[in-house]
C-alpha cells in the first residue's frame, strides 16, 4: 500500500485483468442479487394485470334451461363476459352440417365433434369471431350459420369457418347436459 502512486496504478490494472479478487467477487455477487431482485419485482408487476379473484369468481359455471328455445332459434347467453350462442338446430341445419366434405374445410372438424352425442339438435359455441373478436350475426351468410360484420367471415350451422379471414371454427365452451333440457356451461 505504501508504493509510489505510479506503481500503485499499474497494480490495479494487472490485478483486475489477471486474477480474481474480492472486488470481482463483490461485483458479480452484487450483480447477481440485483438481477434476482429485479426479476422477483417483475412478478407482481406483471401478475397484477391478469384476471383478479373477483373476475375469476364471477366466471363460475352457469345453468341454461333449453326448454323455451324454439326449433331453429339461436339464443345468446353470457359466460365469463363472453357471448355463448345456443342454437336449436332444425333437421335441415343438422343435415347441412353433417353432409359437408370435412376434408375441404379451412379448419376440418366433423359435426359430431362439435355437439354432444345424442344431442345433435343443440349447438353450443362461443359467439366470438376467431378473427379479431367481433360478434357474428346469426342466420346470415351463405351457409345459414353466422356472418361476421367486421371482416366478412362466414360460419356454417355447425359454427365452422367456411369463408373469410377467420382461421378457426367458433370455439366450443366447456359444457355438459345436466338433463335433456338443461346444460351447465363452465
Amino acid at each position: 500500500m505504501n508504493k509510489p502512486p505510479e506503481e500503485r496504478a499499474s497494480d490495479v490494472t494487472t490485478v483486475s485483468s489477471a486474477e480474481h479478487t474480492r472486488r470481482d467477487f463483490l461485483y458479480i455477487a452484487t450483480g447477481a442479487v440485483g438481477a434476482v431482485g429485479a426479476a422477483a419485482a417483475l412478478v407482481p408487476l406483471i401478475a397484477q394485470m391478469n384476471p383478479d379473484a373477483s373476475t375469476i369468481a364471477a366466471g363460475a359455471p352457469i345453468d341454461v334451461d333449453l326448454a323455451p328455445i324454439a326449433d331453429g332459434q339461436i339464443i345468446k347467453v353470457f359466460w365469463r363476459s363472453k357471448p355463448i350462442f345456443i342454437s336449436h338446430r332444425t333437421k335441415k341445419d343438422i343435415e347441412e352440417a353433417q353432409t359437408v366434405n370435412v376434408a375441404a374445410l379451412p379448419d376440418p372438424e366433423p359435426d359430431s365433434a362439435r355437439v354432444k352425442p345424442g344431442h345433435d339438435q343443440w349447438l353450443v359455441v362461443i359467439g366470438i369471431c376467431t378473427h379479431l373478436g367481433c360478434i357474428p350475426l346469426p342466420h346470415q351468410g351463405e351457409y345459414d350459420g353466422w356472418f361476421c360484420p367486421c371482416h366478412g367471415s362466414q360460419y356454417d350451422t355447425s359454427g365452422r369457418i367456411r369463408r373469410g379471414p377467420a382461421p378457426k371454427n367458433l370455439a366450443l365452451p366447456p359444457y355438459k347436459f345436466v338433463s335433456d333440457t338443461k346444460i351447465q356451461i363452465g
Partner: peptide, 8 residues
Amino acid sequence: TWLWGGYA
C-alpha cells in the same frame, strides 16, 4: 387475457 385483465 393478460391485456384485458378478464375474459373480455
